[in-house]
Each structure stands twice: as C-alpha cells, then as structure tokens.
Computed example of a mutant assay.
Amino acid sequence: MALILLPVCRNTITWLRSRTRLGAAVPFNDNINFHKVVAGGVAVGVALHAVTHLTCDFPRLLHASAAAYEPMKAYFGQRRIPDYWWFVKGVEGVTGVIMVVLMAVAYTLAHPWFRRGRLSEGNPLRRLSGFNMFWYSHHLFVIVYVAFVVHGVCLYINRTWYKQTTWMYLAIPILLYAGERLLRALRSHGLTTVRIEKVALYPGNVIAIHMSKPHGFSYKSGQYIYVNCGEVSPFEW
C-alpha cells in the first residue's frame, strides 16, 4: 500500500533516475506498469488477508471450545461472539469493507475499457467511462488510506500503540506524495509561464506545440513537460 505511491511521484522518480544508481534495479522509466504491478500485488494481498480472516480466524473464534475461548475474553468480551455479523459491524469490519469496495471501484475504472471510453454507445456503464471518472475514482485512495490507518489501529488483540505500525509504513510515502502534489500545483499556477506560439498537426496524429522559452531556462537532454488541455480534461496531464 505504501509502495504504490512511488511510481506516481514524478519529480522523485526523475531525481532518483538521474542522481542515483537505483535505476539499474527499479524500472523508473516504466513507472506506470510498475504502478500496475504493485496494484496487482496489493489486490493479491487483500484477497489473502480477507480469505484468511473469513475461513480461518473467524470460524475458529465462533466455534472455539470454552477452554480455547478463555484467553480471548480479554479482547472479545465475556460473551461469546454470536456470528459473522459481529465482525462486520465493528470498526475493523467496516473499514475493511470500505477499503475493498473503493479499491474495486478504482481498479475497475482504471481498465482501458473505462479509462479510454471504449464501451459501446448503448452500454449503460458508458457514463462511468472516460479519464475524469478514472481520475476521481483513483483519488478515492485518500479515503482508503484513512480507513487503512484506522483498520490498523483498531486491532482486535494488539492494543499496544507502538506495535500498531500501519501509520509508520505510510507516513513517508504519503508525505512524499503530498509534497509532489503541492509542487505540481505551484508549478501549474503561474510560477513559470510560457506562450504557445504555434500548433501543428502532422500525419499520424502527431501534434507539434511550439512554446516560448522561459527566461533563464536551459534545456538538458532527457527533460520533458506535461501538457494539460482543459477542453479534454482539467485533470489529465
């Protein structure tokens, strides 16, 4: 969950690729596919985590003998747990369900059929397609991360605060990502402005955009820019 933010931290990736030797082991130049691989790993981890609870932990608690349940009374109360619903309606269950549902939405709308609007005209799901829906659904990760921290803090058995380490794993990646977004916002609101001087469309749907060079700008090999067309999407760069 923490690693999935790194591939979308563009400035950090550029710095790591150009200033360190990590590029030999980490696919910085293929950051989107790296992001997808990490997302796949998260999905597998979530599935294993949920299946383990549903098929192992919860049944053992529900069907434990009186002697086996005795050490658990300090954590689950004197009365026996009646059914699965007891787990679902608790803080851990609610936050777990929220995370799974929101991640399922984000995964689904990230599929090329939805993200690139490839659904047919008559498909009722077409209204959920397009980059904007993909962008909004992916930013549900804010709620997912909040639920993740709460899920990790409100543990059934481990009540010692310094052993509830979920927030520790997330702190640095979240601060890094927040810094990236702040820097991107500052750059996109007039700190450096350019003037579009010419736009040309060439064969093969290739668009050439000629811009004025900012004062004091010195081009270096490998540099690139992100362009936003508000008429297409205010969020796509």
Rank of each mutant, 00 (worst) to 15 (best):
R115H: 09
I143V: 15
P59E: 15
G122K: 06
T55F: 14
S212L: 04
H139K: 13
H151E: 07
F148D: 03
A171Y: 08
E231K: 14
C229G: 02
F134T: 05
S218C: 08
P203S: 01
P203C: 00
I207V: 14
V150G: 05
G130I: 10
L155D: 14
L16A: 15
P173Q: 07
A147T: 05
R19I: 03
G216D: 03
A171S: 02
V227S: 06
S129P: 10
R115C: 04
R19N: 13
A67M: 08
K220A: 13
N132K: 08
V142S: 12
V51E: 04
N205W: 05
Y145M: 11
S129Y: 08
A64P: 11
P82R: 08
M1S: 05
Y84H: 13
E180L: 04
N228E: 00
L62E: 09
V42Y: 08
F217G: 00
A200L: 02
V146Y: 05
M168R: 11
V94T: 11
R17I: 01
Q223G: 05
I172N: 00
V105P: 01
P234N: 14
V194T: 15
A178E: 03
L54M: 14
L175W: 09
L6Q: 02
H63P: 00
H35D: 08
R195Y: 02
A50M: 14
Y162Q: 10
S221C: 03
L175T: 03
A67R: 12
F114C: 08
A64E: 12
F28D: 03
I225D: 08
R187L: 08
I172Q: 01
S188F: 00
L186K: 09
L125E: 02
M133V: 04
G204I: 02
T165V: 14
S18L: 11
V232M: 05
K163T: 09
A200D: 12
Y202V: 00
G230D: 10
A66P: 03
V149M: 13
K198D: 14
G90Q: 06
F141G: 01
A104L: 15
